[in-house]
Design a protein around this nucleic acid. Structure first.
Lengths: 186, 186
DNA sequence: GAAAAAAATTAACAAATGATAAAAAATGAA
DNA sequence: TTCATTTTTTATCATTTGTTAATTTTTTTC
């Protein structure tokens, strides 16, 4: 998905504002397995995914995957981006990826100069917020197998592209539990 | 908490922009038990809490409380505010409340006219996003009693002001489970 | 302050999920 | 292809959380 489409997909922008953003973006590619972003560091770039798939995880006793990003989606260390503080997430590439890179610093400048871009940034955060809130609510009153079915319905392609251990972690259960759930559904 | 402080608390605003917002705000009060916002309706106002306490819940077989708002916080039906669609949450007043009311329509106008207000709105969504994401992650790798201890640490006053059934629901467990956890901690 | 109503706790048993280990299946490298 | 490695499944038992119902405590109302 090319950058112009990605930007508009987040929120429609006037041509001039879109160009201002595009002028600050550079293309970059990494191989599967690459760690794009490390936890506990202030990250100074954000990325848009042109092609490929990544996951965000938090490291504890085990790794907890809490987000998958694919074509058209945006990779951000929220804490870095919002509060200039070290982030809690690590981003790992699950496939070879082509990315668009944008320096946070430049984006901030644009936010202050262009009301359309400021509102575009607002829309981005608001949409992400709704998605996250819906997942939280789903986690609160659906059991593991309902959440699995929901994921199958909403993002069937993930099950083809991501190994089950990561899916299980994303659903908040162990891989063994997920295997059991899948067996029961047959 | 008065409106000027609430607005700045979300994100510092130039005096003129703050006044523009304040000019669109009216004060209003409701009694404990009042339903401020109903699920499945498009809501045309947002509210800032001057005084009091509210909860947001989703209705399923049971009620699932997923948010508490107190002095200084903002009451929004996210779906209404962001996508002009009926929201999923109902807002109930847990105490007598004094609120500041702001018409979504007027806020949208201000977002398009004033870059400072647009960025203020962006910051609001971003901060809420981080809070929600942290709760999601916490839900993903902490068990019920760890989540209870976390809530006690971060928001001890809630335990004084909110009945345990709502707390249990917020933590994603039954009230009976919460009682058991509290008994074990003694 | 007593009675009624609501909220919180306790107990017993059921169901869901976790932990560990072993086996089977799939994937990748030589 | 074949061997080694990784991923997934299966099985068993332990732990956590849910369900229901009864009891106690707290709050509200008259």
């Amino acid at each position: 998905m090319d950058i112009s489409k990605i930007l508009d997909y987040i929120h429609q922008l006037p041509e001039q504002s879109k160009l201002a953003l595009q002028n600050n973006v550079t293309e970059i590619a990494f191989a599967k397995g690459h760690i794009l972003l490390k936890a506990n560091k202030v990250e100074s770039n954000i990325y848009f995914i042109k092609k490929g798939l990544v996951r965000a995880y938090v490291e504890r006793d085990n790794e907890v995957t809490f987000w998958f990003g694919k074509e058209g989606e945006t990779i951000i260390s929220m804490k870095s981006y919002v509060e200039d503080q070290p982030g809690y997430e690590t981003i790992e590439l699950l496939e070879d990826c082509e990315l668009y890179e944008l320096k946070t610093e430049n984006l901030r400048k644009l936010f202050n100069e262009d009301v359309h871009i400021a509102n575009w940034g607002r829309k981005f955060a608001e949409k992400e917020l709704i998605k996250t809130e819906e997942r939280l609510i789903s986690k609160q009153f659906k059991n593991a197998s309902e959440r699995y079915l929901e994921l199958m319905k909403d993002h069937p392609e993930l099950l083809q592209r991501v190994q089950l251990g990561h899916i299980a972690s994303y659903l908040g259960i162990t891989q063994v539990s997920l295997s059991r759930i899948r067996a029961e559904l047959k």
